[in-house]
């Protein structure tokens, strides 16, 4: 059968089924819809609970952060693991280790060594990179109060390293953040998140229950300990995201050769 025709048919059919269900949806923005208000017969609505109690439970004004890093912190841990897995899979697939490319001459390769004559670009980026990085750290730290957190800040931080590589050369960027270090950093991010989440087990509380770490943070209430706990795991997320971003870029742009790394 014609491949295009069958693909069109599959897409139209799937879309039609999805649209068929739409007629039955709750109204858009309806405050009494099941997702916003819960349904009789089930447990009290989680959304209503979050809105009423999230600040009280975690003393984090940004509801999204409280849900993401505390109530559903287990999901977020594994979202971070997904990113880590993606980074490791990229290495497994693309990375060419030195023994294999013995035949390649050491001639300059524009993909790796870059073009050193771009003065305007080079200087501009040199000025921009520290600003980007400071703002990235701000985004990581300010997730409690505004949109942001580890994923967003980590992406920016990763982008700043990519900017270094783009404006100078991959070799230069790898000099700042070598292959060994970013693999370690990616692991360290997961270790911070999962290891920190593991600590409450030591005092007999459940996994991820940061409230139990009151004594460690020296806070009066459990909610403040949760707030600090969220900050710690955001740092873990940021480390992993930063290094995986850069790892993917470095592997793709040098076809896995990463000259100058390791």
């Amino acid at each position: 059968m014609n491949a295009k025709l069958s693909a069109t048919f599959a897409v139209v059919f799937t879309g039609a089924v999805l649209l068929y269900a739409v007629s039955d949806f709750p109204d858009f923005g309806d405050p009494r819809s099941p997702a916003n208000h819960g349904v009789s017969g089930g447990a009290p609505s989680a959304s209503v609970y979050y809105i009423k109690n999230a600040y009280h439970d975690t003393s984090v004004p940004n509801l999204v952060t409280a849900i993401l890093a505390d109530y559903r912190g287990y999901d977020t841990l594994f979202e971070t693991v997904v990113i880590f897995t993606a980074g490791m899979a990229i290495f497994a697939i693309l990375r060419v280790l030195r023994r294999d490319d013995s035949g390649i001459p050491a001639a300059p390769d524009p993909a790796i060594d870059g073009d050193h004559h771009r003065i305007v670009v080079g200087v501009t980026c040199r000025i921009a990179v520290p600003l980007v990085q400071i703002f990235a750290l701000y985004v990581v730290a300010h997730g409690h109060h505004s949109p942001g957190g580890g994923f967003q800040g980590g992406v920016m931080l990763g982008a700043s390293f990519i900017l270094i590589a783009l404006s100078t050369s991959l070799r230069h960027a790898l000099g700042r953040l070598s292959e060994t270090s970013f693999i370690r950093l990616a692991c360290l991010g997961i270790l911070i998140y999962a290891g920190f989440a593991f600590l409450p087990l030591v005092v007999g509380r459940n996994f991820l229950d940061y409230g139990a770490l009151r004594a460690l943070f020296g806070t009066d209430g459990e909610e403040m300990a949760r707030s600090h706990g969220i900050f710690v795991v955001e740092i873990g997320i940021a480390l992993t995201v930063t290094s995986v971003m850069f790892a993917i870029f470095a592997n793709l742009s040098s076809r896995g050769r990463l000259h100058g790394g390791l």
Binding site: Y49, Y50, G211
Partner: peptide, 12 residues
């Protein structure tokens, strides 16, 4: 996980 037991569904 994280000790969020009640009400059902707020945690995992």
């Amino acid at each position: 996980v994280a000790g969020w037991e009640k009400p059902v569904g707020i945690g995992i």
